[in-house]
Nucleic acid binder design. Structure first.
Lengths: 347, 347
DNA sequence: TTATTAATTGCAACCGATTGCAGAAACTTT
DNA sequence: AAAGTTTCTGCAATCGGTTGCAATTAATAA
């Protein structure tokens, strides 16, 4: 383990001061061009690498962005990560990632770690059972920019990046209505979470706009797991009259519904049309292909980091922008397109 | 932005030296128990948070593990990340993640960044077109533990964590043979990459063990994308006699093959049986469900970080362990189980 | 030629925690 | 009671850059 080269070594080598070396390496304008060149050459030749700690210690900045995510291994979240990483890397930031495993307690611990690690900013998508955001208080009070995405808490006026879940769900439901569906079930996630609450709202509004009363027994709150899909289908099959459309709050669960429905001999979309949410790759694998709301995870990740960096650079002010809403559109596939005959029969 | 509390503040408050405060906070044995208690109390009460940079600067350790991954948004890789994060977090390490986007140039840049960030150790799964590992030389020469997983380079004696791809592919191919397949295609990835090279080997060995000569035209090298699957199917359908089994080196591509084959009116598995690799969730969505090799990504991530930390703690020695091989088994599903009739006909 | 101004460079303090070594205090042992 | 131990504390240097301010030199204006 050879010793590390420092700016002092370079300074000695070139018979100049460490100050100038430091400035030179940072491309400070007040350093002579030829001196700079000499410094760079010497640094390269001597195998110098900057010590980020010394630098951070002095500058009180880490060039590190923290991310707290419920679960890394989902298609949506890993797309988000990918987008975040790309932008962060391009801007010279490192990403420290941790997962809450959908557990508020773990999220609190993660927040603490991020705080101790002195991330310059934090991006969070809250856990399933997170009830308040007191654990982010230190960030607020220290003025560390904190930005929520996708799963955002409600009560505080925190900056967040979301899609318009209400609108998207409205579109999805309206689409089902236009296909002739009259008894539409909504399989939803935990209503405490904004995204599911909003999707539920969108569903209700769409029904309302078509003068259809929403029924409590048509709204099934689940954890959106595969198993939940199967169980929901059980319930649905027992209903009389039988529902003719299902709007599921995520694709995973929607796919499991389709599988269960097919198993029960139900024709999709003609007996029951199904619409999912997220536009995961599985939508194009299940048969029939699943109609879904495109959720631009990669873009969301890019935007999240970009916004955060803007705050950090003082380009924009955290207190001004409060919500960034990304576009999302309905991608219509076979699972919801009733044949004309079926439509007619229903109509 | 209130000022940060430092050990000096605590020292002043308690009228003791910063040295003792530092030792106290680190639970140094040479500090009186009651003094320690006072220190902890004061720290908590004053809202002290340790400055990792000052500490790192002095200790030359970052408690950070770097990960370079080809693409974050794949089911396999995000499972690996999840496993890594879990273990790292439990052990008090942070994870800095960056992706090479399957590009050697970017991988080189990432490696440099990781080096500059002074990660304590590095975990790498190499990019698609990485040809050598010279860019990791700094890690070797500085004695920073470097551990490859999944996509591991060959020529050097670097520590790596893999599954036995040869054996797994052998099992998969043998399974097809046992189902009565006689003309088995192998759709492979880039042969320069160990995993694909080994899967090809396993395929060849299995044929050999059944006294079947492997044919060059039955081996299709692709990038394993969806598109590649479709193109491969085109080729396969033009072959005469028609192949009756396909072993694909990943699930994504296998699924796209199945879709294309079905579109062409081929019955799966009876006309052509298909086996994939990875055991992604999509194996259970495509119809017929895809037989695949279970690739324990989450476990691989856990093992990778655990091993790395063992090296860091000096528990084990990098130079001793060279390869850790995880178990993987074939998960047989419908896509490869020929009906007895079909089997008989073929036999 | 002298006064100004601009361009460079360096001094020295600082960021906050860690640690080898020495010293003080308390306790044991002859 | 003197000497030897053990237990605790603190001094001061160190890790490697960064930065306000002053100083030196070169360039330009008067």
């Amino acid at each position: 383990m050879e010793k590390e080269i420092t700016i002092y070594d370079i300074a000695r080598e070139l018979s100049i001061s460490p100050t100038t070396v430091s400035r030179g390496l940072n491309n400070h304008p007040a350093v002579n061009k030829s001196t700079k060149q000499k410094i760079f050459d010497a640094a390269a030749q001597m195998g110098y690498r900057s010590n980020a700690f010394a630098s951070n210690l002095r500058k009180k900045r880490t060039n590190t962005i923290g991310v707290i995510v419920p679960l890394l291994n989902s298609n949506f979240q890993s797309s988000v990560m990918a987008g975040m990483e790309k932008v962060a890397n391009e801007a010279g930031y490192n990403l420290i990632i941790s997962q809450s495993l959908e557990n508020a307690q773990k999220e609190i611990a993660n927040a603490r770690t991020m705080f101790e690690s002195r991330v310059d900013g934090l991006l969070v998508s809250v856990a399933y059972d997170t009830e308040n955001i007191d654990h982010f208080e230190p960030f607020f009070s220290k003025g560390i920019p904190l930005l929520f995405y996708d799963r955002v808490p409600e009560h505080k006026q925190c900056t967040s990046i979301v899609i318009n879940n209400i609108q998207a769900a409205h579109k999805a439901t309206t689409h089902l209505l236009e296909q002739g569906c009259q008894r539409i079930i909504h399989i939803s996630g935990n209503h405490r979470i904004n995204v599911y609450k909003d999707r539920l709202k969108g569903y209700k509004y769409a029904l309302m706009d078509h003068n259809i009363a929403s029924r409590e027994d048509y709204i099934i709150e689940t954890d959106l797991s595969e198993k939940a899909g199967e169980e929901a289908v059980q319930k649905i099959l027992e209903m009389d009259p039988r529902p003719d459309g299902i709007f599921v709050a995520n694709d995973n669960c929607a796919v499991s519904c389709i599988k269960a429905l097919k198993q029960a001999g139900i024709a999709i979309p003609d007996d029951i049309a199904v619409v999912g949410f997220n536009n995961d790759p599985i939508t194009r694998i299940i048969e029939p292909n699943l109609t879904s709301v495109n959720y631009p995870g990669y873009e969301m990740g890019e935007v999240a980091v970009r916004s955060l960096i803007n705050y950090l650079d003082g380009v924009s002010d955290v207190s001004i922008t409060n919500t960034i809403t990304l576009n999302s559109e309905l991608v219509v596939r076979e699972s919801s397109q009733k044949k004309e005959k079926a439509k007619a029969r229903l109509a």
